[in-house]
Design a protein around this nucleic acid. Structure first.
Lengths: 359, 359
DNA sequence: GCATGTTTTGCATCCGTATGCAATACTGCT
DNA sequence: AGCAGTATTGCATACGGATGCAAAACATGC
């Protein structure tokens, strides 16, 4: 009656050292139904009688059956895996983002394939993997070129850009508009009498870094402050530290305040100011950053910063990607959430807002 | 070597809206060989003439062919994916570990599936995924029970436990022996005149936490110090902060020093001491930690700590897992690397070693 | 030139699940 | 009871690549 794929040979090997997979055929045989029945019971929307459902589930649990996601992927074309691209986990903003993204995706039944880009140029490999592993989608928090994003999209893999957006590409994006907050920060500094204000920027090719410095410098210019000593750095603690020393050396003692393009550098700059330069913060030097990472709240720092709403941003990114996956035809969305100036203790004269510092 | 998937696309259907996958059959047809020929060319060890190899590769690059890893997994049983289980990325020790592991695995051609365990009990789902996605192996830096580890192993998925080891389970492990360094730390404190030494431990079910406190307390006892005020906490900054306040309240002003079971808590405790209690470190209170995370080196902290050789540990973990995957019969290895006492500035009277603080 | 040994190659089949289609089992109703 | 209509179920096949086996191609030796 049925073709029986040669099941009953030396099968009864007790607890064999070979952990052979249990397949839907075996469950079917034990439950006395067809393989497709088993398949249907394990597929959410499919039709199956209570009777069949019960017998299959009983057999499945007796055998310890677990549907093979790989085989399922092969037929459905959907892997239930998403890729997350992070450039650098040592910038402590990214673990926070990754942690949130991973938790949220997991909650929605998506597995997370993590790609880190330590030394650049690994993107081509990721593109290959996206195709090869049939990833359902990508969230990228790393610098990708328009061509690279297009490569994903043309393979039918939707992309959500986190904290950057690219013109001419049909990728969704979640960004943080720090313009307003950056201007408020600039105003706050000027209003409290700061006049010679330096800036420690990110790498030249960083769009976020550029946005932050531009917004800030623009407002400063509007307020009549034109010379802003600028040092380019790399978003790291050490980078901020070194940049601060350079800035201090270059600008002499006239420097009032230094704003850094992210909190990691702000922390480094603050430490350099206090411990290497021996100057007090904020009394002799004001410092501010961007991101709102956790360490910036630590008692030793309490850095005034422009915070990104990480929770809401990651939530939006996940939502958007899931939507794109569910309906690839839907036009990609660009979501912009506002950054918020969190006033803490590193800017002289600026009083902490009533803000409870919550997330 | 072969690249440029979009160079010459006058191959009909220039910008097809439907990104249909290119299969080995199509490559075979274009190259005028059989599908198995294509398969063999793309499999490293297989036999193929130079002629065939050339024609297949030409056809493949013309079509932009990318072998389907999913289908390959289905037949070979090897997914080239490994799982990494991390309990909590907000403990900044873990991003460092994850970053290293991810980079190393990637270098060896393994994709990384990231599992975070925010609220416990998600392990069962991971077990399901391991089977379903046919993961080649697991590195776990989270607390797993022996049963859970066995569940992986019995599914033919080798496991390397990072920073913990379990009796009676055939899992490899990489641990850090902090015993000696912890004893040296205890000696250092006693030798420099500390007498009333508190300890902030990890959660009760944490083996690392237990090991650290035990080793430390044991040595203290040997040196004739028996009462060590102990507070249990949760490895977080806030936890260390709160625990410090509790300790100070309980032990009164007699407290000389506080050792924390990890650096995150040490940082929190240090901040609590300086900023909430208003006491100077190390003059009025010494503090030390474990792990050797990056922030513990920051100028504001410079915490004396027992460092784990993360580079070498992750290297060992990756090596061991790859070996297990290559030869499942090989008995699992338990590797123990020594922790190292890094003397910095938070213990009164203890002079920084000549150590360059490198990794 | 022929027998023998060694690669290469193609054929057929398998991996484990999903699903269109047709057959079957029910349901409610007259 | 008989019938149309719906809900279940099984059959057969597809998904894309790997691989055992035997045929074919090539190389070697005399």
């Amino acid at each position: 009656m049925r073709k029986d794929t040669g099941g009953d040979r030396d099968e009864e090997a007790a607890v064999s050292p070979n952990p052979r997979r249990v397949t839907s055929y075996e469950v079917a045989r034990l439950a006395g139904v067809s393989q497709s029945g088993v398949s249907r019971v394990f597929k959410p929307g499919a039709s199956a009688s209570a009777e069949m459902r019960h017998r299959v589930l009983a057999a499945a649990s007796a055998l310890g059956y677990q549907p093979n996601a790989i085989a399922r992927t092969l037929t459905t074309g959907r892997s239930n895996m998403v890729g997350i691209i992070i450039s650098d986990l040592t910038n402590l903003y990214f673990p926070e983002v990754l942690s949130e993204l991973a938790a949220r995706f997991s909650r929605h039944g998506k597995r997370v394939l993590l790609f880190t880009l330590p030394h650049e140029a690994g993107v081509d490999r990721i593109i290959g993997d996206v195709v090869g592993y049939q990833l359902d989608g990508i969230v990228s928090a790393a610098r990708l070129s328009a061509d690279q994003v297009s490569a994903f999209l043309s393979r039918g893999c939707p992309v959500i850009l986190y904290n950057r957006s690219l013109g001419g590409v049909a990728a969704g994006s979640v960004c943080c508009d720090q313009n307003k907050a950056a201007r408020r920060l600039a105003d706050g500094l000027v209003d409290t009498g700061h006049r010679r204000i330096g800036f420690i920027g990110g790498p030249a090719d960083s769009t976020v870094g550029r946005q932050r410095s531009d917004a800030f410098a623009a407002r400063l210019a509007e307020r009549g402050i034109r010379t802003t000593p600028f040092v380019e750095s790399d978003f790291s603690y050490a980078g901020g530290h070194a940049a601060m020393l350079e800035l201090a050396g270059r600008a002499g003692s006239g420097l009032d305040a230094v704003v850094c393009a992210n909190d990691m550098m702000a922390i480094g700059a603050l430490d350099a100011t206090r411990h290497a330069l021996g100057r007090r913060v904020p009394e002799e030097m004001s410092i501010a950053g961007f991101d709102g990472i956790d360490p910036a709240r630590w008692d030793s720092y309490r850095i005034t910063t422009v915070r990104q709403p990480v929770r809401r941003m990651t939530e939006a990114a996940v939502r958007m990607l899931l939507d794109q996956i569910a309906d690839p035809a839907r036009p990609p969305v660009r979501r912009v959430l506002p950054g918020e100036l969190i006033v803490r203790d590193t800017v002289r004269g600026l009083a902490p807002s009533g803000d409870a510092d919550g997330r």
